[in-house]
């Protein structure tokens, strides 16, 4: 079965190990949530999968539909179908969203083939309508002077345009008010289906009211310490992360 398969992944930043023997299999078509307190390695997982050079892989393997992901350049991972929605998307001054997406679409075509402008804009406008975005939005410079909500919506728009096979949403809910949260969730739900696997990384249960996961994983100190259905998120919300540190973490070490 096609999946994003993470096996015994170990990742360090400098000398410091962050992910410790992390394993998770995300089947295509499912939405999994990873929850956990700050500093437990959630964002490291996201950045390491996308190929950020500050994160050193010290062990393990990752397969995207059977293809080796680690060792590839970030752009090659993107072309294989991996998408990372950033927690803090950075500003690219002077580059309009439309031009950026066109360049990204172009990068996915074989050499000598050009993005057809008419179809591109038709698709773009369709996705923007679905996200209730103003048409003027994509003429703005990428993330420049954007509010937190605009940045996240821009990430969702990019995801919808680039049509990945697996999307990692790194704390997409941070800094969002409830209306923005709903729009972001709506975007993900629109894309949800047998062709997409989604890994939702979040600190709070709140986002999962709108993006209902098939599975929930609780992360602690660089690995998954408990997995369950969507009800696990409620249990975690009710018991707090103390519960993880006191009850789940010690058992995981054995």
């Amino acid at each position: 079965m096609p999946s994003l398969d993470i096996r015994n992944l170990c990742v360090s930043i400098g000398e410091k190990p962050i992910l410790k023997d992390f394993s998770l299999s995300l089947p295509k078509g499912e939405v999994h949530a990873i929850m956990g307190p700050n500093g437990t390695g959630k964002s490291t997982l996201a950045k390491a999968l996308a190929g950020h050079e500050d994160y050193t892989i010290t062990g393990g393997e990752v397969f995207l539909d059977g293809e080796l992901l680690l060792g590839l350049e970030p752009e090659a991972r993107a072309k294989l179908g991996l998408f990372l929605a950033f927690q803090y998307p950075c500003e690219i001054p002077g580059v309009s969203i439309a031009n950026f997406l066109r360049a990204a679409s172009q990068a996915r075509l074989p050499e000598g083939q050009e993005v057809a402008a008419v179809e591109f804009y038709k698709k773009l406008h369709g996705k923007m309508d679905a996200l209730k975005m103003d048409r003027k939005f994509t003429a703005r410079s990428l993330n420049e002077g954007f509010s937190g909500g605009e940045r996240k919506r821009c990430e969702i728009l990019q995801m919808m345009m680039l049509e990945p096979k697996y999307a990692i949403m790194d704390e997409t809910d941070s800094g969002l008010d409830i209306d923005a949260l709903k729009i972001v969730a709506q975007g993900v739900n629109l894309m949800r289906g047998p062709e997409l696997g989604v890994l939702v990384i979040t600190h709070y249960q709140r986002l999962l009211d709108y993006i209902v996961p098939d599975k929930v994983h609780v992360m602690w100190d660089g690995r998954i310490v408990k997995s369950g259905g969507k009800e696990l998120a409620f249990e975690l919300e009710a018991k707090g992360y103390d519960w993880v540190s006191k009850e789940l973490a010690p058992s995981a070490k054995n």
Binding site: A50, G51, H52, E53, E73, P74, E75, R77, A78, K79, F83, L84, F86, P89, C90, E91, I92, P93, G94, V95, N99, F100, A103, A104, A107, R108, S141, Q158, L162
Partner: peptide, 27 residues
């Protein structure tokens, strides 16, 4: 480096990412 990584994570090569930022700068 963060800007370049961001663009590369969308499928652009390092050179394409740089030339896009340069074009953005003089746009």
């Amino acid at each position: 480096a963060e800007q370049i990584f961001y663009m590369r994570s969308r499928g652009l090569s390092e050179a394409a990412a740089m030339s896009l930022s340069v074009n953005g700068f003089i746009n």
